[in-house]
Amino acid sequence: MSNKFLELLSKRDWLLADGATGTNLFDVGLETGDSPELWNIEQPEKIYNLQKAFVDSGSDIILTNTFGGTRNRMKLHKMEDRVAELNAAAVEITRRVADSAGRPVIVAGSMGPTGDIFEPVGSLTRQEGIDAFREQAVALAGAGADVLWLETISAPEELEAAVTACSETGLPIVTTLSFDTNGRTMMGLTPSNFARKVKELSPVPVAYGANCGVGASEMVAALINMAMAAEEGDILVSKSNCGIPEYVDGAIRYNGTPELMADYARIAVDAGIRIIGGCCGTSPDHVRHMRNALDSHTRGKKPGLDEVVARLGEISNGAREQNSLGPLGSKPEAPAREGRRRGRDPKRKAADDGKFPGQL
């Protein structure tokens, strides 16, 4: 059976994804502690307007407003019995936007982490994780999503459970991890080791990469390191935060300019990344600049880390070290430490407040 996402990938050198959901919804009234997913029922026109703005700005892929759509996240709002309803409503909104675009636009069913730690470090069992992801995946697929999009995952155990659950729908799977801890995920996974681990998943996702993180320069560095361990033909994904989060007048703001995000898009496609988008802080205006930059860009040579730093900003020592070690020389994974960096920057504070960085 044909699939719109796979068809579009086969025809295009690159695809432009959308930007942030949460930070843009905060600008139109979402309050800290609210469930963005509830707005799929209570404020559907605001979800529609945001997603239409991304399409009008040039996005080829729109993620549904379902990042926190597992029962594990929904129970924080006493809505664990509404998983199917809220996920289906989200797809229906995004499907309406995509189908009226006048060009191919992909509906990607967003699936974020459960928020619970898997055994043996935590208490969530593998089967419980699979069951939670399956419930969400079935709802997204049944409502008409073109692809299931796992994002902001940190632990390999959770990734494996999520892919296993998603496989039961028959839809293509994309997965992105967040490398926000000195070039690693919060649970210690490096980009190059992720590129190897993703091949052990069943089924192997059709595309993989990174989202969120700590800015465009660190994102591109992570993808360059990931590409060293990737296989020929792998489709890599980069969905970077719009700069660095800062507190301004009591709110989180991201300092990335439209011009910086446009250059990020150009350097990302030069690095061989096929799917490029924005994460926290990325507005439709940023996406419009990214689309214009990509449409007018002639692919250049693959950038090195020095060029990434010169154009986009500094990167972590961890990202530099991983690059210098080469594709098979990665150091052993760092042991997971509960609460690493928690509360030391705005994104960790957001997690403490019940929002994962990728939800912003």
Rank of each mutant, 00 (worst) to 15 (best):
L124F: 08
G213Y: 00
R288I: 04
E321Q: 13
V287H: 00
A229K: 01
A262H: 04
R274T: 14
E232N: 10
R184C: 01
W39H: 12
T70G: 04
V269H: 10
L171H: 08
G209D: 11
A195D: 04
R320L: 15
L148T: 09
T64F: 05
M290A: 00
A222S: 15
G300W: 05
A216D: 12
T181I: 13
K301W: 05
E151F: 05
G272V: 13
T114R: 05
A251Y: 11
P258E: 11
A351S: 13
V198E: 07
G69Q: 04
A53R: 10
P332M: 08
G142H: 12
N225E: 05
Y208S: 05
E307Q: 15
P245Y: 01
T70Y: 03
T185M: 02
E42H: 11
T70M: 03
A89I: 08
P120S: 06
M79R: 14
M261L: 15
A141C: 11
N3H: 07
G69F: 05
L76S: 13
R196D: 12
K239Y: 02
P205Y: 01
G102E: 10
A221L: 08
S283H: 08
D249T: 06
V83C: 09
A88D: 05
G243A: 01
D352T: 11
N24Y: 08
Q322E: 08
G183Q: 01
L63S: 14
A351W: 01
S123K: 15
G188W: 10
G33L: 00
S178C: 12
F26W: 00
T164G: 07
A251H: 13
N323W: 15
D306G: 12
K4A: 15
F356V: 08
W14K: 03
T23I: 02
S192R: 09
R266S: 10
M290H: 00
G68Y: 01
E45D: 14
V220Y: 03
D146R: 07
N193T: 06
V105Q: 07
G300P: 02
D295T: 10
L124H: 10
D116W: 03
A230Q: 06
P191M: 07
Q43G: 00
L148W: 02
W39L: 09
D352P: 00
P327K: 01
N87L: 06
A350Q: 12
V55W: 03
K46H: 08
V204D: 03
L30P: 04
A155K: 04
T164P: 10
G102W: 00
C242K: 03
Q51L: 11
G19L: 06
V198R: 07
I62P: 03
S217C: 08
E158H: 09
A268L: 08
V147Y: 02
K302H: 09
F118Q: 04
D285K: 15
K75T: 13
N211E: 03
S330R: 12
E128Y: 09
G33D: 11
